[in-house]
């Protein structure tokens, strides 16, 4: 027990004192979170802006609703010119009871949206003018759907990726460096089992993963990024631990083959980077072509991403952990077994 505790402490100290590792564990993924979070913050949230000439009941109803952004013009020609120049998708011209919309043909989606909205408000005003109660009513309510706000999919994705990277690199580099510096031989000459050495390194990796989770989620929840966690967010913790074990095993496999730290680092990148891109770390994988989505299913990171997304922001329950957990455990067992077969004590 003392051996396990002291080894864990030694590795923790080694980790904390290594500035490069700290950077790649915490700041590097955070940089992606911050950059993408800020760049994509307003995507999908920006309102369509149109030109308005004149005023009236319909215009003030539109303004109050806030569904369109209105830019007031005094002159019809100036407003139409804006549409011709392509600066605005449409111009609404009010002449007493008569409303006229001049829209750009090039952007049919936006124009149709504007026409629909304006038409809706005109109909509403007409119904109100008759003094009759409306026969049909409808209510609209927001649903948190698959197309999430960017920060909502970025945080689980970058968290999974950051945890995967630090687990793979942590185990691969430790293994190679210890073999090269003959620390492994030295440990083999001590009456201590390989299991306690391995599990102490794994303990440090899981601790690091939990700290990463806390920091990434904490920063994403700042008002400037605006992450909103679902009630079942704590289900991410078992997922975080299983992911660490799976990617730790992958690092052991990489470390068994690599002879130098440089080679290990390159090999780990070759394994982790494509997996990160194809698993929906930086963009929702639902936007990718179907074949790519199928391919991405072979990566454990894809399943970890899905699980994280489901429990952190989509509010799914424990049933959302079944598939990701099974995949991560299976991956850890298979890869861990392979790693133990090719493990070498010395060069």
């Amino acid at each position: 027990m003392t051996a396990f505790r002291t080894l864990s402490l030694a590795m923790l100290k080694g980790f904390v004192r290594d500035k490069v590792t700290l950077f790649f564990t915490f700041l590097f993924p955070l940089m992606f979170l911050v950059i993408f979070g800020l760049i994509l913050r307003d995507v999908g949230a920006d309102k369509t802006k149109i030109a308005v000439v004149g005023d009236g009941q319909v215009v003030s109803a539109l303004r109050d609703s806030g569904v369109l952004e209105l830019e007031q013009y005094n002159d019809v020609d100036a407003a139409v010119q804006k549409v011709k120049d392509g600066d605005l998708p449409a111009a609404l011209i009010v002449r007493g009871q008569q409303l006229e919309v001049r829209f750009a043909q090039s952007d049919q989606v936006k124009s149709a949206t504007v026409l629909g909205i304006v038409n809706g408000f005109v109909d509403k005003a007409n119904v109100a003018a008759t003094g009759q109660p409306p026969r049909f009513t409808f209510a609209a309510e927001k649903v948190e759907d698959a197309s999430l706000k960017p920060i909502q999919f970025l945080t689980p994705g970058i968290l999974s990726w950051g945890v995967a990277v630090s687990a793979v690199f942590g185990s691969a580099l430790t293994l190679v460096s210890w073999r090269r510096k003959q620390v492994l031989r030295r440990i083999r000459l001590a009456p201590v089992s390989a299991t306690s050495v391995l599990s102490s390194r794994l303990l440090v990796s899981t601790g690091v993963a939990l700290v990463q989770g806390g920091i990434f989620v904490g920063i994403a929840m700042l008002p400037v990024f605006g992450l909103k966690l679902s009630g079942s967010w704590w289900l991410a913790i078992p997922l975080l631990l299983l992911g660490t074990i799976a990617f730790f095993a992958l690092g052991m496999l990489v470390g068994a083959f690599a002879k130098t730290e440089e080679a290990a680092s390159a090999a780990a990148n070759i394994v982790v980077l494509p997996m990160a891109f194809l698993s929906g770390t930086f963009f929702p994988v639902e936007q990718a072509p179907a074949w790519l989505q199928a391919v991405s299913k072979i990566f454990p990171l894809r399943h970890m991403n899905d699980g994280m997304l489901n429990v952190l922001v989509r509010g799914k329950g424990i049933e959302a952990l079944v598939v990701p957990s099974a995949v991560l455990i299976g991956f850890a067992l298979v890869v861990g077994f392979l790693a133990s077969r090719v493990f070498k004590w010395e060069e």
Binding site: A10, M11, K13, G14, R17, D18, S177, K181, Q182, V183, R185, R186, L189
Partner: peptide, 15 residues
């Protein structure tokens, strides 16, 4: 009962 010093200096990182 045996103590071994290896040819390379084998140490843990950053301790």
């Amino acid at each position: 009962r045996i103590g071994v010093q290896l040819q390379a200096s084998s140490f843990f990182e950053k301790l």
